[in-house]
């Protein structure tokens, strides 16, 4: 990771993929059946390339944060704690963006910004969990203890949150695709994604995740420089 931070290729890849997402996402023809014939999605369906990948990249970023929290507990190096914090922070920001883009979309297709859909609830819970993580961090002043307690909470919360987003959609009906009846799908309604959309969607997921990582590493480098300045 240390070496990768200063590499350029993945940053360029991120820009290229996001440019591709914006251009292709706004231009490609939408599948007639899902966008026009059987639903009221119409052109708003293009939000799919922005809203859903934001969620995916939030998951990626909080997973990276989890990874560094575990690493911190195994080997208490303050750098790992900074990594875990910054990735959790960017993940939370992307979560907020996902929630906002989702609500705007919901307002157009479902008629209201918030409809207690299990996935909306799951999203809100994720935000609450990570805000609690930052509250917990800031409630302690001792650096060493703060890092350790925060890492423990991060791991505990993550392993409860993941089963939660797998369980919640199965308990109630969801307005999201694949959420009719009891077969609520925690991810996408797999079959509703056609081949051309998939060609934009997965690059978009990678692009947004890389952008999130990039932002995190920038904040990270600032934090590390600050640390260096304080210790010098």
């Amino acid at each position: 990771m240390q070496a990768l931070i200063h590499r350029k290729w993945w940053k360029i890849l991120s820009i290229v993929l996001l440019l591709y997402t914006f251009i292709a996402g706004l231009l490609i023809p939408l599948p007639y059946e899902t966008a026009y014939a059987n639903s009221n999605l119409y052109e708003s369906m293009r939000n799919f390339f922005f809203h859903v990948p934001m969620w995916f990249s939030q998951l990626v970023l909080i997973s990276v944060s989890l990874f560094y929290s575990i690493k911190y507990l195994r080997n208490p190096d303050p750098i790992y704690d900074i990594y875990a914090t910054e990735f959790a922070r960017t993940g939370t920001v992307l979560g907020c963006l996902g929630l906002i883009t989702g609500s705007i979309w919901a307002n157009y297709t479902w008629g209201t910004y918030w409809s207690n859909d299990p996935k909306q609830t799951g999203a809100a819970i994720a935000l609450l969990i990570y805000i609690a993580y930052f509250v917990l961090r800031n409630s302690m002043t001792d650096m060493d203890k703060r890092s350790r307690v925060a890492a423990v909470y991060n791991i505990f919360a993550y392993f409860i949150y993941i089963p939660m987003i797998l369980i919640l959609p199965r308990l109630t009906e969801s307005l999201h695709p694949g959420g009719k009846g009891t077969e609520g799908n925690p991810g996408l309604g797999g079959s509703s994604l056609d081949a051309t959309m998939r060609l934009v969607f997965w690059p978009a997921v990678i692009g947004w995740s890389l952008l999130g990582t990039w932002i995190s590493t920038l904040r990270l480098r600032v934090r590390l420089l600050e640390e260096k300045k304080h210790s010098a």
């Binding site: 609830t121 819970i125 969990i129 609690a132 917990l136 505990f156 919360a157 409860i160 939660m164 919640l168």
Partner: peptide, 13 residues
């Protein structure tokens, strides 16, 4: 603060 978001799956079940 920490617990209420985490306890939701249990409460719903």
């Amino acid at each position: 603060i920490m617990g209420f978001p985490l306890i939701i799956p249990q409460v719903l079940l």
